[in-house]
Amino acid sequence: MPLYIKDDVTAALVARLAKLRGLTKQDAVRLAVQAELDRAQEAIPLRTRVQALRAAYPLPAPMDQTADKDFFDDLSGGL
């Protein structure tokens, strides 16, 4: 989907960033938007981000096995 910038000031800023970084205007817009999204993500407290990750990727249920010396010896073939 095309993006049309109708504001002359914004278009000039994009052109300035593109020239400064040696990019196309499209890449300059992508770079600027990604940088702003990264900044917004970092503003979310770490605790909240970790909670969201744990909700999306929960830990598996315990397997009722103990990881003792015998367990690791069995994994390593008794080395």
Rank of each mutant, 00 (worst) to 15 (best):
R47Q: 14
P60N: 01
I44N: 05
A18Y: 00
I44H: 03
L46R: 11
A52M: 09
A15C: 05
V29K: 00
A12Q: 12
P58W: 02
K19G: 09
R47D: 15
D64G: 09
L31T: 11
Q51M: 13
L31C: 06
A61R: 12
L17E: 11
F72P: 06
A55T: 10
M63H: 10
R21Q: 13
P45K: 04
R39E: 11
I5A: 06
F72T: 03
T66L: 15
Y4K: 15
L46S: 10
P62D: 03
G22L: 04
T24P: 00
L23D: 05
V14P: 01
D8L: 12
R39W: 01
D27M: 01
E36T: 08
D68W: 02
A67S: 08
V29F: 00
D8N: 10
P62A: 03
L31P: 01
A15Q: 08
Q65W: 02
R39H: 09
L37Y: 05
F71K: 01
A28V: 01
R54L: 15
Q34R: 13
K6P: 08
Q34A: 14
A52C: 02
A18I: 02
K25Q: 14
D8M: 09
A18Q: 03
E36H: 08
A43K: 07
L13P: 07
Y4N: 15
L53I: 08
P60W: 01
Q41Y: 10
R30P: 00
D70L: 08
L53D: 10
P45G: 02
L37G: 05
A18E: 02
D38E: 14
V29T: 02
